[in-house]
Amino acid sequence: MSQPVDRSEGALLEVSGLSVTVTADGRPARAVDGITLHVGHGEAVGLVGESGSGKSLTLRAILGLLPPGAAVAGGSVIFDGYDLVGQGSRALRRIRGTGISMVFQEPMTALNPVVKVGDQMVDAARKRLGWGRAEARDHALQLAKQMGITEPEASLSLYPHELSGGLRQRVMIAAALASRPKLLLCDEPTTALDVTIQAQIIELLARLRDELAMSMLYVTHDLAVVAQLCTRVEVMYAGRIIERGPVTETFAAPSHPYTLGLLRATPDVDDVRAELYAIPGSAPGVRSRPAGCPFHPRCQFASTECESGDFPLRAVSRTQETACAFPERIEGRARVAPDAETGVGT
């Protein structure tokens, strides 16, 4: 399952040195700071981070869908041979239409409020795939069934506001899948859903990944969802990638204290013996990122060397990279909770 980290040749999506600035009150700040990552054909990559890490901005920058006040400040995004950065909106729309779909956490932002949801799915498939109405309709119904939507015929003839939140979310995912994209960008699409529905959607996405070789870049804060769906993981903190590697190896033996902290902070439903660990403090805002290693004020393994200088990603094994200068400090500590922990001031 694991692949060498540097195999980016011929990748479907290649992001290099991508930076995004957000401007508020006339003061720009770098929210995404030189991100480099790739997604191979048929590969699912998890982009994990907490609020303010820049993971959603990264995803939106790839599609040219940044919110007002945010702009790409540098870097390139190559999708299927095309550079998406700096393209006009018409060119972008063409590329988006033919190969990339995105699903958001908030379904209302992606659905047209005055078109019945079934028609939106049918339109997407007809426009992008050139299908006939009947064929597109069957496809839409089938997708809806796979999403666990009960009574799909009835649900698809409703307008977005008539659906419950969970149903709306599934319809949006189905609409994004209706055009059979090569790359699906996901921004926490199952976070607001019940676990039973989430399980069905994860199962469906995994099947599409395998059967249609659909690639995925999946942004989430939920390590468990990444473990179910992705083969590689990129962990973001304060606008940078601080650890990357194959999911199984990274979660079994993380090489950055932040990843270790996240794993220990995630409650395990099967095992209550390990005490939960609260990472002290909270993630820094875009304007208050510390010098040196951005994680050092919250890191229980930090020393004075961590307070200044650069901490670029470097290889710690054939498959794993970390931005921590002292990964040996957490070696062998997998998921056992530390002795002293307070969670003060979080």
Partner: peptide, 26 residues
Amino acid sequence: RALLAAIPRVTTARTETSGAVKGDPP
């Protein structure tokens, strides 16, 4: 049991969620 089966786990790879229920509550 269905709720428990539906929870994604960090430690185990993806398995067929055969125990999970389908559909929505009526």
